[in-house]
Design a protein around this nucleic acid. Sequence first.
DNA 1: CCCGCGCTCCACCTTTCGATTGATGCCGGC
DNA 2: GCCGGCATCAATCGAAAGGTGGAGCGCGGG
Lengths: 213, 213
Amino acid sequence: MTAPAAPVRLLLADDHPVVRAGLRAVLETEPDFEIAADVPTAEEAVELAGRLDVDVVLMDLQFGGRMLGSRATAEITGRPGAPRVLILTTYDSDADILAAIEAGATGYLLKDAPPDELAAAVRAAAAGKSALAPTVALRLMDRMRTPATALSRRETEVLQLVADGLSNAAISKRLFLSQATVKSHLVHIYSKLGVDSRTAAVAAATAQGLIRR
Amino acid sequence: MTAPAAPVRLLLADDHPVVRAGLRAVLETEPDFEIAADVPTAEEAVELAGRLDVDVVLMDLQFGGRMLGSRATAEITGRPGAPRVLILTTYDSDADILAAIEAGATGYLLKDAPPDELAAAVRAAAAGKSALAPTVALRLMDRMRTPATALSRRETEVLQLVADGLSNAAISKRLFLSQATVKSHLVHIYSKLGVDSRTAAVAAATAQGLIRR
DNA sequence: CCCGCGCTCCACCTTTCGATTGATGCCGGC
DNA sequence: GCCGGCATCAATCGAAAGGTGGAGCGCGGG
């Protein structure tokens, strides 16, 4: 309140012009924030995060469907002396959250957050503290309580094809497997997800963000 | 450019504070626009649209999951001397678009639209002209070309339960039907969607935005 | 007034799926 | 080195789901 601390330098990355403008408008009213730049692509975010000497990067996860926000996060946080990355996205899909945190994100916020919560999260991130939206935190707790929710790569692959509407026969051809193997994977998937049919598995996996839609 | 026309009075309705701020920031730079108010709920939009004498309402369709943006649109446009309603939403789901247009929306834009496109759409709407984002227009064209993509209410209901992972038996109990009826609906659904299994039907319907996820 | 469509239901038959059990090779950690 | 998880495949059996061909009822438009 009294001593004017060094301003927090921010980089905004979001492909929606309206959201960028909104973040600018909201965050510029905070006297201790300084917006170094805003960019519409993850690539530019990676580049400028290194060049501009920012403290916190506010990053969307969905860039025009190309979804490399988590990779961009990994690249930014992987460098020495890297800024903190705050994920700011519309949806709270489990897989997204996990991916972002694994990629080294400091926090995860939803875009419907009120301005003061947003500012608080940015300050927390700048101080190196983790900041999770309540909804997100709850989801993570859920995740911890349910241990069997981790599908293997192959299982995810099979389930994705199921979600695309393929039959076991079609999946076996696509993946060069026997139908027995596909069935075997499905049995394991069902038991991990606690369901007993392909459609229920797709519903559960979609709800938990384990597969894309 | 020369004669200062009467300003276009706007009402913004979106549950995301950041988006509201962004729209304000983007639209306030247009000298012929005047933002009468911005509100976070569909209910307030309905109320203020009548009281404030605005020309154009910019409305989100998804309000915190409660999804009554289209109903709000219908209520606003149903009154005499009503303002034009421009839908401004994140996703381009077919069902949403159709519902909005049926509700009397003048245009349908995606939130990733650049500011100038947005301003142009608002001016078009104010002049009573329809404004559709190119992506949306394309989808509508697709819809026109494919005639059999309209599921009946009951069929949609059944398919939604299928997508939720229920078996035919479970669906029949839920809807107080015989399994024969459920199967019958499914057969019709398959033929309309051009598929031959429940999972494929869910995939197709999801891709076309016929059911919610 | 009748036709079409949406909604409901029935029977029969085929195919697919799911449940169970069991087996093999591979890899990584304790 | 052994154990556990992953990926692969096999056989069998009962249960769902899909395919076919009807049929009756109500409602709204030509």
